[in-house]
């Protein structure tokens, strides 16, 4: 009965109780967690930005540090959403059996997955905004248009949280996530214009990047950071929304298959 798990989502506002549970746990360790979220990408951004930036007078008409800052916002959102749904999500689902406890209450498994999605997206939004705030404080951007990066980061967080939950639903162990990071996340970061303009790459890789979600996040965030309207913004939004929606529906089916046996 492989088709038994293919049915419309059974969602309710109880998903917010799942969100709230994760928020309450995070709150206990908010300061180290925020520092961890912020420090790592920030060190790379400032180190590469200042160090490498000395060698590169200008990238795409701006300082390398400013160029890198916009990429780092998206990169940080992606990483944060992925880590939360993979490692922390797997721990709650598989190790602590938290999800199994929750579904004994009037909360559906779909609610649990939705709560996890919204939580990971919120947490990743926060880490992206922390980078953006630093960029602002360093005077790398002053444009009000940059505020549009907030919804872009939220959508990016949803897309990567949804993909992460789908991967978690089929993961046999923590080791499995190494494949996801090594084969998907890291190469994507390199072809999506986070660290250098994608135009430097062979055309084939540029085309490949065109179907990856991070490329579209960067394509929206970078012009906005410099006060410009992105080219074809609806296309980029649509691709991210499609990843979020398809990833979430896939995560629902795969999680049901795993836990509603």
């Amino acid at each position: 009965m492989a088709t038994a798990h293919l049915r419309p989502p059974d969602l309710s506002l109880r998903a917010l109780a799942v969100w709230r549970r994760n928020f309450d746990v995070w709150r206990k360790l908010a300061i180290p967690s925020l520092l961890g979220n912020l420090a790592d990408p920030l060190i790379y951004m400032l180190g590469l930005g200042y160090g490498l930036g000395q060698l590169l007078p200008e990238v795409d008409g701006t300082s390398y540090l400013a160029f890198l800052a916009t990429g780092t916002v998206c990169f940080s959102v992606m990483n944060s959403a992925s880590f939360e749904t993979l490692y922390s999500g797997f721990s709650r689902m598989h190790v602590q059996k938290t999800w199994e406890a929750i579904v004994n209450a009037p909360v559906s498994l779909d609610d649990v997955v939705l709560g996890e999605l919204l939580w990971a997206a919120a947490k990743s939004l926060l880490s992206g905004m922390a980078i953006l705030a630093v960029a602002w404080a360093l005077g790398l951007t002053g444009s009000a248009m940059a505020l549009w990066i907030i919804p872009v980061a939220a959508l990016t967080g949803l897309a990567f949280a949804a993909l992460g939950l789908a991967v978690t639903a089929v993961a046999p162990s923590f080791d499995f996530f190494l494949y996801y990071f090594t084969l998907f996340i890291t190469p994507m970061a390199l072809v999506s214009g986070v660290f250098f303009p994608a135009q430097q790459l062979p055309p084939m890789l540029q085309q490949l990047a065109g179907v990856l979600p991070l490329h579209h996040a960067v394509a929206l965030a970078r012009p906005l950071f410099f006060g410009q309207v992105p080219q074809a913004p609806l296309l980029h939004v649509a691709v991210l929304a499609a990843y979020a929606t398809a990833g979430f529906l896939l995560a629902l089916v795969l999680t049901r298959r795993r836990l509603m046996k």
């Binding site: 109880r14 109780a17 709230r20 549970r21 406890a101 009037p106 909360v107």
Partner: peptide, 8 residues
Amino acid sequence: VVFGRYFG
């Protein structure tokens, strides 16, 4: 408290 929230 957290479990009670799952019941609203």
